[in-house]
Structure formats: C-alpha cells, structure tokens
C-alpha cells in the first residue's frame, strides 16, 4: 500500500525525478490542431452519404421542385417578384440551417454516443479546437451548398442577384451559420441517443422554418405566430437572406441582427457550460455505472 502522494510541486522537486515539463512533454498549440479537425470533419461529411444528402441535395431538390410547381408565379406580398427570387435565397438559408444545425446535431450526437468524443477527450485536443474544426467544416459545406443553390437559381432558374447585395448576403450567411452552429452544439447535448438525433434536429428545425416562411411566404399568418417567429432565430436569418434578392435589394436589419446575436451569444454560453464528451446524460451514466456493479 502507498502513503499519501505528495503534491505536484514537491514531487517535481524530488531527487531523480524526471522534469515535469520538458520540451517533449509540452503540448502542441491548440490552434495548430484545428486544421486537422477541419480536414477530419470534412472527410466524415464527404464519406457520409446522409450528411451530403441533407446539406446539399435536399435544398437543391426543393428549389427545383418548388420552382417547377410554381411556373410564372409572382409574389405580390414581396412586391410582385418572380417566385424564384424568393425560393433561391430561402433554399440557400435552408442549406445553411442543414449544415450548421441539423448536421452538427447529428454528427456530434453520433460521435458522442459511439464513444468517439470519449476517445478524443483522452488526448490533448482542447474542446475549443474540436469545435472550431467542426465549425470550419460546417462553414465550408455551408458555403459550398449556398454557392450550388445560388448558382442553380441564378443560372438555370433565372433568379437575379445584384452585385451590391453580395456583401449583405455573405454577412447573413456567416451570422446564420454561427448561430445555427451554436444552437446545434447545445441541442446535441440534449439528444439522448444516435437514433433520436435526426428526428430531434428536424423536429425542432422544420416547424420553426415553416412559421418563419422559409419554404413559402405566408402573408396570412396570424400576428401572434408572426411575432413568435420573429423572436426565434430562423425568421430573421431567412428574411435577411431573402432581402438580398428583393427589388430593390437590402441587407440585414439591425433588429434581425440583434435577435440573431442574442440567440448566438446565449447558445454559445450555454454550449460552453453544457458540452459533454461522455455518452448519455448524467442519469444514463449513473445507471450504466450501477449496472456494471451488479
């Protein structure tokens, strides 16, 4: 049996003890690990057909399908613009929500549930480097998806985007992605298992997207529902994206930015305190520990 261990400092000073912090023991800079995480997450996305389908194919499919069923239609509620002027940015925002929210919820939950995060937690990889890697990969996928949707909308469906609206569109995409990502990380901590990840992610996102006029404008929507949607993060983001294709185009309003920042900062703070590496919640972990003792 052993005597009580000495504290770290006195142990370091013990004769014959190897240095506790030699060059070989210094961890690599956390920032240097982030690019590897981006590449890792991109590889996973590329090799996961479901991820690619959700982030790229679904928004593109919806854009084409909704445009096909509404030929020559104009939207009086948006000043008489062709419906494709609404659908193109709307589906681009849907692509960002898929890349930044749905895919983050599913990917993080699966990695946690399968013990991949647990394995990574045993390494010197900092939490923030893991999340930056995940965010970087989501940003690349979201940017690619948005470009594909906009490209198809502009080139093949004849949507018009004024060059002066591009900076506003980039800002809206960036803010929308960051907020979606922070909410996705928080949501992943609430999902109990891999099986529940996709239903929970879409179960939360789709109803909000519907009342936020992501799929079609709803001028007859009840005032209270419109107020609820305006206070949630999807409507301000989608409307900011759509405004870049309005005639004349305009950018994100201060009110929209304020709502998005409130959600983004709030979600980031919650994510910092609730992110976990271990599968299941505390209750599930305790149950597992108890069952192992039987």
């Amino acid at each position: 049996m052993t005597s009580p261990p000495a504290d770290a400092d006195s142990m370091r000073a013990a004769p014959g003890a190897p240095p506790a912090s030699g060059t070989s023991e210094r961890p690599r800079l956390g920032l240097a690990l982030a690019p590897g995480q981006v590449r890792y997450q991109l590889l996973l996305l590329v090799r996961n057909p479901l991820g690619s389908f959700i982030t790229v194919v679904v928004p593109l499919m919806l854009l084409i399908a909704l445009d096909l069923v509404t030929p020559e239609m104009t939207l009086q509620s948006l000043g008489g613009v062709p419906v494709v002027q609404f659908l193109t940015p709307a589906m681009a925002s849907f692509a960002v929500l898929n890349a930044g929210f749905v895919d983050v919820v599913v990917g993080t939950t699966v990695a946690r549930d399968q013990g991949v995060l647990r394995r990574l937690h045993a390494t010197p990889l900092p939490t923030w480097a893991l999340l930056i890697g995940r965010l970087g990969a989501s940003a690349i996928v979201a940017a690619g998806s948005v470009l594909v949707v906009l490209g198809v909308g502009i080139i093949f469906l004849h949507a018009h985007l004024a060059s002066s609206a591009i900076p506003g569109l980039v800002l809206s995409t960036t803010v929308g992605l960051l907020v979606s990502f922070a909410l996705g990380v928080v949501c992943s901590t609430l999902v109990p298992s891999t099986e529940a990840a996709l239903p929970v992610a879409y179960g939360l996102m789709l109803p909000v997207a519907f009342i936020s006029e992501v799929f079609f404008p709803a001028p007859g929507e009840a005032a209270w529902l419109r107020s609820v949607a305006a206070a949630l993060p999807v409507a301000p983001f989608a409307h900011a994206m759509e405004s870049a294709f309005a005639v004349p185009p305009h950018g994100m309003t201060g009110g929209q930015l304020g709502v998005l920042l409130a959600w983004g900062v709030g979600a980031a703070v919650v994510a910092i305190f609730t992110f976990r590496w271990e599968p299941g919640g505390l209750r599930r972990q305790r149950a597992r520990a108890r069952s192992s003792l039987r």
Binding site: E25, R26, G30, G115, R118, R119, P124
Partner: peptide, 25 residues
C-alpha cells in the same frame, strides 16, 4: 505528480489510453 482531473493537456500529452469502451470513426 498531477491530479488527473486538473492535469489538463500537459498531462494528457504524456499519457496513453486504451479505453474499455470507446469509439473510432
């Protein structure tokens, strides 16, 4: 010489682990 819960990245750099149940992508 470190408390494992507080050793952080410095300690993890020097420790290898094969967990009983952990996943690899």
């Amino acid at each position: 010489g470190h408390d494992p819960a507080r050793g952080g990245r410095h300690l993890k750099t020097q420790v290898g682990v094969v967990l009983q149940s952990a996943g690899i992508d």
